[in-house]
Amino acid sequence: MTAVIRVKDVVFSYGGPVVLEDVHLDVEDGEFLGVVGPNAGGKSTLLRLMLGLLEPTAGSIEVGGREPSEGSRAIGYVPQYPPFARDFPITVEQTVLLGRLGTAHVIGGYSRGDRDIAARVMTETEILNIRNRRLNTLSGGQLQRVLLARALACEPKILMLDEPTANIDARMESDIFALLRQLNQRATIIVVSHDIGFISQYVRRVACVNRTLICHSTLAIDGKVIQDLYGGDVHMVEHAHA
């Protein structure tokens, strides 16, 4: 197995206290990695560093053997909070098509091939029937699927999702993770989640982030690991979502 992402001795600070310290992580090709940890522990920051949206204070990151800013085109990204205004006049299909930017010609409109790929990923994420709807008419779950489809339209080798199910109900959460399991057959997946118990059903390895990073195989997750990660008494409740 080869590492598609290599994080070496990374330190990061937003200018104040250190957010990440001596972080080392190799993400293997085809892996389904969960990133867990307490709030403000540095999970999203780690993801943004890997995307090249932030630069490490020290250490280095490689994506596909290149700088993150150059390698990020191989990544499909689903943000935790959509950074756009919900009332922006744009349809589902136009949003998904934005994933085709940077793949071909610079000038003019989308090609037939771009539209075919957009239609395929909308079918895969079950949003083809709402392709002409404006974003502000969608539910939280539908919007999440649109963002996933936009990420898939990039035809990514790596899919990164930041808390993809934070704002949706449990049923939708299971559906999205089932879809991610399928997508893992063709892409490496890194998913940030607050729900360690739930994602353990899907991922093979868990990166526990709380300023520092320690990786565990899913099987090794126990009460002690969780207590160390969250820094207090935390009970692990094994449960399955309906």
């Binding site: 090249g52 085109r73 990204y77 744009i90 940077g102 610079v106 990039c154």
Partner: peptide
């Protein structure tokens, strides 16, 4: 007309546009 897609991406979601190399 020439750069409609790029202007749309920058107006809609700058972060995603940056990730796509715009």
């Amino acid at each position: 007309m020439l750069f409609y897609r790029q202007f749309l991406a920058v107006a809609f979601d700058e972060e995603f546009a940056r990730l796509r190399g715009v």
